[in-house]
Design a protein around this nucleic acid. Structure first.
Lengths: 394, 394
DNA sequence: CGAGTTAAATCAAGCCCTGAAATAAGCAGT
DNA sequence: ACTGCTTATTTCAGGGCTTGATTTAACTCG
């Protein structure tokens, strides 16, 4: 991401335009006058900028509201048809591609199972095919697509070139952007899947409006996205958010990362199932997801091995959430991921209680702990917000 | 802190001026030409802004360098004599006030022991007296003082009015700014002492140039300042940074915060001494500070109780540092506080090793763990950076 | 149907940044 | 000392931007 230029009077215009566009995008339809009051820009400037935006087709008028006795206010909003964005979710078992209009209404979707492994040579063609397919399906031309966002399960380094390290896919230093670039002209934006999912919740889910939040994602493992002051805190190397490897139990279980006592060694689905087996729980059938579901179902009966494991997990997770609140004082903690939701659906209150036991009072009181609201497509949706954000920034 | 206005062509000027002023302040003396290249502003604009700054006396010329064959470059720098800033460190036992010029050279200092308790009615007059004293001492007029920064040991809420909660002082909801306002016209800026100390390290100590860092302060307890993307991350309520209460040992020791297993229940000076006593260590004389020093000295002999406690402490602290690195991926971890330095002086390498055992490899490799470089006056120095920052921002 | 009211557009003024051109301030050689 | 040559800084005209004031538009109400 190149340093955004600043300093000329033209950049000023771009900034103001962006401010207005964002206000319109994230809020209800509004009149120029209201926009002026809201953004602090003069009515004259709002008029000017809006004229440009309307000429470009980005903003449209949508009716008007009577004002007692005067000229009615004309309501404006972003034209959802102005363009489209594409979001890609690269998972361990499939590649999912979705196309959205600017209102983030899904317009087309394509799904490609990864039956022959997940080597880049398998994945890249499917992403490209998916992008073509959704554009064809939705009947839109590449020229109106603002960009493609891609969420991958691994660490994404942005500089000097986009490089993906995804152990679970067996990807080591894969120059994903370069590989895709051979097959498309569209702007490509790549980020970690947990981050894109976090973005989705932040923009359209439980995180709406929060300026400081942590989105915790519990699936097979544990990841997170830290939002500080309205934008994701990526750390020095764009690889922040490894919540799962916070030490929680000194001299504890060995984690798959090789270290000892990590949160993920207790709280991810994989760890929960292992702990269940180690504790002598009766065997569970099915894949990880169904197994964990039965585990949690069984935990409803007190005094079972499952109940013990789940209680412990809630304790551990709550404690770690408490630590996050103490350290970062976010206004919201948002819990998601398939395993997180499975757990949260039944144990959210218990989690809150566990967290409160490890949080300084005055901090706990200014924070809320909630579940993700978006479904399984959130990774793709969040990925699609990457080009959307670029569009809004101008 | 009012929302900074943006959007007019005048604000643009202010921003550009600020960019130049910061570049000059933090760097070596430089020519206009170099500034232009560095900031991206046109040479013409640099000339204009610099002319203003020189007319105001903020920037001065300091010699010139020959250029091979052409007109020599005139070197510019911020005039340290343009103004002064005052930093106040409100501690549990004394109030310290220091006056600095813009180069942050100390020009005067005043110290007031708090012999009659630390009620605001004791502290406030001493702060005011100190401010007057250092101005008189340095022979500067209030009109050239840019502001007073104050670091207090507690949680500082900035809105809607500055309110300090400082349990260790027995302060509950103290409107410190309002109380001081009765006695001075100078701009007042108040923040948590750990934060101001962190600012000092970030600006002038081990943190110079870091954009993502965590400054961990270990004294009697454990606090921290999280720097994300160049500025302190204060969380939603300006009270982030409570690293000390991160859960580290499930079912562990009770912490003075009332919760269980906090880092601070193991790693602060108070906790270390308690653990030492509980483990049957021979009694240590003197106040907390000398006691801890002897404890650490004794730990040099293997197989003593002290050695056990210190080893454990290093393990715990290292683990927690690892967690910070995983979560935030900072480029630097800076360890300070009197107890932190005492420990770090002898055990920094052990700490690094302990941290690396709890950090994902690729994250550990992009981070360095260092000790604070500034002395005991860092709180006041950091507090003084508060008005300095306002000055640089314009 | 005209007076009153409110919303939006237009206009002139005032700033700001920039590239180009002009000026300043040295060096090297003669 | 003088003439070119080189490089740094300033000056200047041009083009943009935002803004408060002024118009114009679009209704309501009596």
């Amino acid at each position: 991401m190149a340093e955004r230029k600043r300093g000329t009077v033209r950049d000023l215009r771009r900034d103001n335009r962006s401010v207005l566009l964002r206000a319109l995008y994230f809020g209800e339809p509004r009149s120029r006058q209201e926009l002026s009051a809201e953004t602090g820009l003069s009515p004259a400037s709002v008029s000017n900028v809006v004229r440009d935006l309307m000429n470009e087709g980005i903003v449209v008028e949508v009716g008007s509201v009577d004002s007692d006795g005067g000229r009615p206010r004309v309501l404006l909003r972003v034209n959802p048809e102005y363009g489209q964005v594409i979001g890609v979710d690269v998972g361990e078992t499939r590649v999912q591609v979705e196309l959205f209009d600017l209102a983030m209404t899904e317009r087309a979707k394509a799904d490609y199972p990864l039956e022959h492994g997940h080597d880049p040579s398998e994945v890249v063609p499917r992403i490209l095919a998916g992008v073509e397919a959704v554009m064809a399906d939705a009947g839109v031309d590449a020229s109106s697509v603002l960009g493609v966002g891609i969420g991958v399960p691994g660490v994404v380094r942005q500089r000097p070139e986009v490089i993906v390290e995804a152990q679970t896919l067996g990807w080591y230093s894969v120059p994903l952007e370069r590989l895709l670039r051979a097959g498309t002209e569209l702007p490509l934006l790549i980020d970690n899947g947990a981050n894109t999912m976090g973005r989705a919740e932040l923009w359209f889910g439980s995180g709406r409006g929060a300026r400081n939040a942590v989105i915790g994602l519990i699936g097979s493992g544990v990841g997170s996205a830290v939002i500080s002051d309205g934008s994701p805190d990526r750390g020095s190397d764009a690889s922040a958010g490894e919540w799962g490897h916070t030490p929680l139990i000194v001299d504890g279980r060995r984690c798959r990362c090789g270290n000892i006592g990590c949160l993920e060694a207790y709280v991810g689905a994989e760890a929960m199932l292992e702990r269940y087996t180690e504790a002598g729980g009766p065997p569970l059938s099915g894949d990880q997801e169904t197994a964990l579901a039965s585990l949690i179902l069984e935990a409803a009966c007190p005094d079972t091995v499952a109940a013990l494991i789940v209680d412990e997990t809630v304790c551990y997770l709550g404690a770690s959430i408490g630590g996050l609140i103490n350290l970062l004082n976010p206004e919201r903690i948002i819990l998601g991921g398939w395993a997180g939701l499975l757990l949260g659906d039944r144990y959210l209150d218990a989690l809150r209680a566990a967290a409160s036991r490890h949080t300084l009072h005055h901090l706990y009181n200014t924070t809320s702990i909630e579940l993700c609201r978006l479904g399984p497509d959130a990774v793709a949706l969040g990925a699609a917000t990457l080009p959307l954000e670029n569009f809004l920034t101008g």
